[in-house]
């Protein structure tokens, strides 16, 4: 009996030791991978930062108004932001790779899911970022064009354009992420439809005068030209 216990214990201990001996190298490997991952991620960050600086990415995002956005959110410059993001994603990936080496059951599955998810996350972040830039750029362009063309309510136009683009971007992001696709589609449809309805009602009710003016101006154009001499700026 005692022998049996001892032998069992020994066996268990041996197994534990064996298991531990089995596990230890994996742990080492994991740590090594994590360290290597850090090195590679840092390198990636460095390279990306250099490339973006060279490509004057800051200026680009500044032109598009993204820097303003970032400033307001008290975030670092867009170059810095992007390179940091890449660093973390890369390193996280390596750590998870290391973890999977540990061979912990269940974890494996989650890790592989994470890896499958990673590109999607990346793309959707990308879409989101540039979507915001585009929204701000185009809304401002519309604002300026409307002001210079002397259209009524330029601010409204600009905000509508921004909203539409952001909604569109968000729906794209969610679709990319595969989250609540149906819900999002529905929501988008509802919001868009509502906006169109609102616009048409607004135009119908509030725009009667406007439409009249518009038509008048169109028809009276010839007369106006006779009445008014245009001045050439140059």
């Amino acid at each position: 009996m005692r022998e049996m216990i001892v032998s069992e214990l020994t066996q268990a201990f041996q197994e534990l030791a064996r298991g531990f001996a089995h596990f230890l190298p994996r742990l080492m490997v994991m740590l090594i991978i994590a360290f290597l991952g850090w090195v590679i991620a840092s390198l990636l960050k460095f390279i990306l930062r250099s490339i973006l600086r060279l490509a004057k990415f800051d200026k680009l995002s500044e032109n598009a108004g993204a820097s303003q956005l970032l400033n307001q959110a008290a975030l670092p410059s867009s170059t810095e932001l992007l390179s940091r993001f890449v660093f973390w994603v890369a390193w996280l990936g390596f750590i998870l790779l290391g973890v999977s080496v540990l061979g912990i059951v269940g974890l494996q599955e989650h890790v592989s899911k994470f890896f499958l998810f990673l590109p999607r996350l990346f793309v959707s972040l990308f879409i989101f970022f540039f979507g915001l830039l585009a929204a701000s750029f185009f809304s401002r362009a519309a604002l300026l064009a409307a002001v210079n063309a002397n259209l009524p309510a330029p601010r409204l136009l600009s905000i509508s354009i921004r909203t539409i683009i952001i909604i569109f971007v968000l729906s794209m992001v969610f679709e990319e992420l595969g989250l609540a696709e149906q819900t999002m589609l529905l929501a988008f449809g509802i919001v868009f439809g509502a906006m169109m309805l609102a616009l048409s009602i607004a135009f119908g009710v509030g725009g009667r005068d406007l439409a009249r003016q518009f038509l008048e101006r169109r028809l009276a154009r010839r007369k106006k030209e006779e009445r008014e001499d245009e001045l050439s700026p140059l």
Binding site: N63, A145, V147
Partner: peptide
């Protein structure tokens, strides 16, 4: 300094 798109700067000047 390209504070915003340069073309927008010029457009903003018109009014």
């Amino acid at each position: 300094k390209s504070v915003i798109s340069r073309d927008h700067i010029i457009q903003a000047m018109a009014p």
